[in-house]
Design a protein around this nucleic acid. Sequence first.
RNA 1: GGGCAAUUGGCUCAGUGGUUAGAGCGUUUCCUUGACAUGGAAAAGGUCACAGGUUCGAUUCCUGUAUUGCCCACCA
Length: 799
Amino acid sequence: MKEISKRYNPSEIEPKWREFWEKNGIYKFNPKKKGKVFSVDTPPPYVSAEHLHAGHVMSYAQAEFVVRFKRMQGYNVFYPMGFDDNGLPTERYVEKKYKINKSKITRSEFIKLCLEETEKGAKNYKDLWTLLGISVDWSKTYSTINDHCRKISQWSFLDLYKKNLVYKAKKPILWCTTCQTAIAQADLEAEEKESNLVYIKAKAETGEEIVFSTTRPELLPAVMGISAHPDDKRYKKLIGKKIIMPLTKKAVTLTPDEATDMKYGSGAVYYCSYGGGECIEWLSRHPEADPTELVLSNGRFSAVGGKYEGMKVLEVRKQIVKDLQEAGAVQKIEPIKHSVYTHERCGTDVEYIESEQWFIRLLDKKKEFLKRGSELKWYPASMKKIYDSWVKNLKWDWCISRQRYYGVPFPVWYCEKCGGVILPEEKDLPVDPMEEKPKIKSCPKCGSKKFVPEMDVLDTWQTSSLTPVIGSKLVSEKNVEKKLYPNTLRPQAHEIIRTWLFYTIVKSHYHHGSLPFRDAMISGHGLDDQGRKISKRLGNYIPPQKIIDEYGADAVRYWATGAMLGQNLRFSLDEIKIGRKTTTKLWNAARFMGMNVEKAELLKSVDVLELADAWIVGELNKTIVEVTAAFEKYEYARAKESIDKFFWSKFADYYVEMVKYRFFGDDEKSKKIAGKTLATVFFNIVKLYAPIMPFVTEEIFHSHFKNLESAKSIHLSQWPNEIKLPAPKGRGLASGGKKTADISDFPTVLKAIEEIRKFKTKKGLSLGAEVESLKLKTKVNLKKYGELLRKVGRVGKIS
RNA sequence: GGGCAAUUGGCUCAGUGGUUAGAGCGUUUCCUUGACAUGGAAAAGGUCACAGGUUCGAUUCCUGUAUUGCCCACCA
């Protein structure tokens, strides 16, 4: 007989099963299968993430535990995979990698580079997911730049246009001067920054001095007006008077405005086009004001800036303070800390400029979105708060046009003559207006035959907010699509609730009048072993491939189960080592079974259990109930804890010990039942572990249990149910042998065994050492359990 | 400034209105026993952040304080 290694060797075993799963299509969605569908809106990762780390591993593994559980429960699982590879994240990545920017390269060259990098990135991910054993159906994949997604993304635009939910308007918008594009509120990040509050002196036409304070003195050339609170005694008499700005000598009227905070700064504030959201709001209250275009799209000053023309915003800020000081117009400068909005992709301070963009309506539908949010089942429930506060605080409609190259094009042409919007037919999608001409020959409004394409591309979220639709449409069978949408589960991280989750709800609400998915399972993210965010810059991570090489994918996955739902999880090599210990322990338990049980057989209701057998089956049943309930609630950490407890502290520590003497004795009947119980319980343990550790469990299934179930793979086998057996008769051990034995006092046996072990440890004896006699302190029914204790503890006489 | 969460042995984290609050790692001791020495058995170690309150009883519920983290907010 071949010597079986005592140590489980993942690098030998795991590749075998990877290949097996792939070859046999174990994880393929079967559209013809009857029964309940469990469909997953898998997060499509940004392929621009070149350096994958434990955080990526963690978030995908966590969703996957649930998927494997559902698959074993008999659901027809739809688990596609997408790659988010269009839009700004990819463009930024390419710009950094090749040290270029969009103004220094042609559109087509840029797109070519993006496509190349995208492909590399996708492969990078696929390799890692395959290594990890992520059970997605690789025949159901999409990339957000491919035709399938373009088509759906453009369809979405057309549908919204028809429903008057998307509009084009010229208004002040959020602008990134680095990326040189409009951005959306969700792309903002508030950052605490050091700044100066500058108190500037101006003269009223009456000759009096008025001081206003600002953190953005450079916008002085674009001043629109100046306000004070109507109740502010300091300024009451100046209201309505002209105030003459220093340097520019521009005169603006001091207006009363209740929004002004009397306590802040000097109590008087000036408004420019545009210093921020507050300026825009002020403008809506003061239509008489006269906005100008000071900051250009490249972040430099226009001719409106006079002598500052061509300078960058921050340069002007320094210079203008100097100039104001020289002119004697600065009262004081107060260093302050305040939060500034930056663009989350590049960290640049956001500017507010007036521009014509496409918007999806949000602001007038907040109530509807809040309602959808409360229809969704949140796991954990507390995550809903993030959603609610986001929706309530929305200030802008969703700007979806980006002045970029690499993205899904708008399906829009304009009539050159009258500016009318020309849209394609739905059946002609996807279209690229920059390459193609519209099908209609002339403008229906003015008859002109000349058209210009929309040059902007769509925001990346405009496409990724459609992933549930994109996924379901990967299946061609019509009636099946209905079963897939809305999806069952959206697993994702909490930092993209305001983007991916919110936008997806918006789209589904607008297009389908429903939620896009039933459950949202929100995970935390992976941190390094010191609790810091894992990042390329800090270099605080080990490449996952390397860890998998060394410890096996099962061990890494074991670590990933550690986080309670919604909690961040520190990377821990120790936890991975425990995972490896667990695979080894399972392996050795299987060896033990193989040594003592010729062929695994399951317990049947006619089998007469001994007390220990009944006890372990009872404990197993409790564990099955617990683990199932935990997985149902997506609480994989709890599920793992429960299996671990049972496997280590009940099965391995006690039951295996209790069964040894029977295997080595010559009571054939007892031996047989011990073997059957051992096989039954261990088979169930292996199944319970299968969602977490798919490789070692598959190996054990095939080497020890294949005869018990017809499933090709343990991952298609039946999830454990409670084992219903008649109560034990207590054969030979309990009184009578006919009466039903009561094993509720079995914990005293465990205690007694513990006491025997303690005794031996104290005496420096090995646990296998025979002891002549022992007086137990633990109260235990010796009539019932005496023989068991003597045999397990190797004690001649127990009293 | 508002909201939410956390604060439990050296470390990382579970947990509960009620007899001695748990786990893993770490530490110490013992054991090469018939699955497993990259193992096993055992021991030590906590006034459950702090201060009040509710209660027969609080680590658990309430209030406040402190610290940390997250989300949000136009204080120019």
